[in-house]
């Protein structure tokens, strides 16, 4: 199978993720979409690694996973705290930091 197809899939996933981040209000969904974008990147890294025949991309994919795991921990904690305080998980409700 032509590896370029994986790149198309990666781009598709990234676009879906980005669109989700921009249009959805629920913080959990937005968060999941961010994860989707991260994994789309991982897929692109791995694909390039395959195309070019070296392991650099795969190593970077591992790093991304670690960073994503840490991010999930911190991010979910923040979302949980916001939900407790404001009884809402909508990202538009957390708009106090404007002029």
């Amino acid at each position: 199978m032509n590896p370029v197809n994986y790149l198309y899939l990666s781009a598709l996933l990234f676009t879906i993720g980005a669109a989700g981040v921009l249009v959805r209000r629920n913080a959990i969904i937005v968060f999941m979409c961010v994860e989707l974008m991260l994994n789309a990147c991982n897929l692109a890294f791995v694909t390039f690694s395959r195309i070019h025949g070296n392991l650099d991309g795969q190593i970077i994919a591992f790093f991304t996973m670690v960073v994503a795991a840490a991010e999930v921990v911190v991010g979910l904690a923040i979302i949980l705290m916001i939900f407790r305080v404001r009884h809402s998980a909508s990202v538009d409700d957390a708009n106090l930091m404007k002029l």
């Binding site: 921009l22 209000r25 957390a94 708009n95 930091m97 404007k98």
Partner: peptide, 11 residues
Amino acid sequence: LQNGYARSYAV
């Protein structure tokens, strides 16, 4: 531009 909506910042 600083409207406080996280999604517009993302845009």
